[in-house]
Amino acid sequence: MPLKDQITEDMKTAMRAKDSARLLTIRGLLAALKQKEVDERITLDDAAVIAIVDKLIKQRKDSISQFSAAGRTDLVDKETAELSVLEGYLPQRLGADEIAAEVAKIVAEVGASGPGDMGKVMGVVKTRLAGKADMSLVSAAVKNALAK
């Protein structure tokens, strides 16, 4: 079953269970998916859905850090609940060791040698590891590999 269909089914389940917090998060996700489809006149595949979920997760993490700094624990709790719902739609993430191995392989393939080649390496890395790894960890691994 495509991921978008799974999200729609989860929305129906949340409606039946009267789980308003989960329902609100899923509706927001579906609205973001629909907006992307309408704006670009495309039908989203699983990779595009995962990219949007990643974007929403990043927004939630940023909000959590901002609300924590402001001492708004009520909003931190709300954003954390939304974050856990969204993370349920991501595939299993690669660990730090697996990311480092992939990055090392890509650096060798591209022939990169130094921090100046980071853009070239990141272009390839983003296409291969999109949705499979946290891109902040990937970026750190690329910097580390090119510093050697």
Rank of each mutant, 00 (worst) to 15 (best):
D19Y: 05
K105N: 11
I106Q: 06
L23T: 04
A101W: 05
Q92W: 06
L90E: 06
F67C: 12
L44F: 12
K55G: 02
K55F: 01
P115T: 06
P91D: 13
E79Q: 14
E109C: 05
I99V: 10
I99E: 09
V124A: 02
T80K: 08
I42D: 02
S84R: 09
M15N: 06
E37W: 02
L23E: 04
G119W: 03
V53D: 05
V38K: 11
T73C: 02
D117V: 01
S84N: 12
V53K: 00
T80N: 08
E98F: 01
D19S: 10
A31S: 09
K55P: 00
E9W: 11
L83G: 01
D46V: 04
V38H: 02
V110Y: 03
K105F: 01
I57V: 15
A100Q: 10
S113G: 11
L44T: 03
I106E: 10
T25K: 00
D77I: 11
G28S: 09
V38G: 03
S84Y: 08
M11I: 15
M11T: 13
M118I: 15
E9S: 13
D10E: 15
V53T: 04
I64Q: 09
L30H: 09
Q66I: 13
E9D: 15
V76W: 11
D117G: 01
K58N: 08
V121M: 04
M11K: 14
L24H: 11
A69T: 02
I64S: 11
